[in-house]
Design a protein around this nucleic acid. Structure first.
Lengths: 212, 212
DNA sequence: TAGGCAGCAGAACATATGTGCCGACCAGGG
DNA sequence: CCCTGGTCGGCACATATGTTCTGCTGCCTA
């Protein structure tokens, strides 16, 4: 068996992508047959077997339309709906999610890939309000993805509430003896030092998204 | 018919989400029956009809597993694979995509939702290298999504090549008489004025993504 | 030239799966 | 009490759909 993907297999792969992209459910073998003008279902089956061997797709036997498209050996990314819990601003603590996030309880969502959430659940999103986060290179209107947590490792990008300053900020956090160093994203800016008691980690920042 | 979504329908909706999230293809009526411990296929069918009337799903009749999940009245977002054509840096022109983007010709991809590409095709991505884009609040390592274009409307965020300065930059562009004003994202920074001949619009910036 | 193998055609076959029909149950209204 | 509409159970039926078998056609090689 050639390791190469034959013309026909390439065509089937392309058809799979288009079909799924259009309908949101995979095609049947006979759909593929028609779509690629293949003369027999057995040919489709044959080539699907080859594609499966080569790792381009995964099939569940005996189950109709059970073709999963893999890309680059990996599972295709899936979209997840992340609830937008509210706004994040310098002068306000972060609105925290309730114990159990139920997708139904929120009106607003952003749709991101599960690569961006790292597959974690209970991720939530906040819309940045104002220009107070520019030192983290985050602008008014940006969306940040957060994972609720109280603890974090050194160097993690976290959202912290500074009790004395009454302020929310996004910084990299490093423990240094009894103190913590809060390092702005923008390398040109000076780090901020404070003591452990003054900081309250609200969440780990996973990603930031800006749309124009 | 009650406009309300009954307990059972809620349960089916939830099951649909989980099933599709797990398998990448929709469940059959009998899958739903088992998954939701429903006593008969006709009950599933009945409730699917109700859900379709209410706009939560769309079904293709006679076709097995042809259930599309809608969310908030809209189609669920799909992931698209955007090729990463290269790096973007201040001192280099932007690597432009060839005439016809074929998904197979690139090694590296980022997966984003089609909401982020605005459904446009021939979108491509670049990885930002260096800190020269901080005035656009874009950092080393960020990913920017671009759509190839030579022309743009006033106020569009664009990637431009400044011929005299030999430099690539991301700015909002405004035509002002015979000149153009390039406005940095960061409101605190001064705009840059130059003449029309000096700028070469390479693409419209659609989105920026940062992952920690 | 015979044999082996990848790929293809065609058709029969076995299930997987959507649909229709009939009756039961229940709550509300006349 | 009966009627009606919404919901459910059970089941048979038609067809949508994956699988398999047999044979054919090139092509390569011992």
């Amino acid at each position: 068996m050639s390791e190469r993907v034959s013309e026909k297999q390439q065509q089937i792969l392309q058809f799979l992508r288009e079909f799924i992209g259009e309908k949101d459910y995979p095609p049947s073998i006979r759909d593929i047959q028609e779509g690629c003008r293949i003369s027999s279902t057995s040919v489709v089956d044959y080539n699907l077997k080859r594609l499966e061997e080569k790792g381009f797709i995964r099939r569940d036997r005996e189950v109709s339309r059970a073709i999963e498209l893999l890309e680059g050996g990996e599972r295709r990314a899936r979209t997840v709906r992340v609830p937008v819990l509210g706004k994040i601003a310098a002068g306000r603590p972060i609105p925290m999610p309730p114990e159990h996030l139920t997708p139904e309880s929120y009106d607003e969502f952003v749709e991101v890939t599960d690569r961006q959430t790292g597959g974690r659940d209970n991720v939530f999103a906040l819309r940045v309000e104002g220009n107070s986060m520019v030192d983290a290179l985050i602008n008014d209107g940006d969306i940040v993805l957060l994972q609720p947590t109280q603890s974090c490792d050194d160097g993690d990008m976290v959202a912290v509430w500074l009790k004395r300053e009454n302020e929310t900020t996004l910084k990299r956090l490093y423990h240094e003896g009894g103190r913590v160093r809060l390092q702005p994203m923008n390398a040109a800016m000076q780090p901020f030092y404070t003591d452990l008691d003054n900081v309250e980690v609200q969440g780990r920042v996973l990603a930031a998204i800006r749309n124009w």
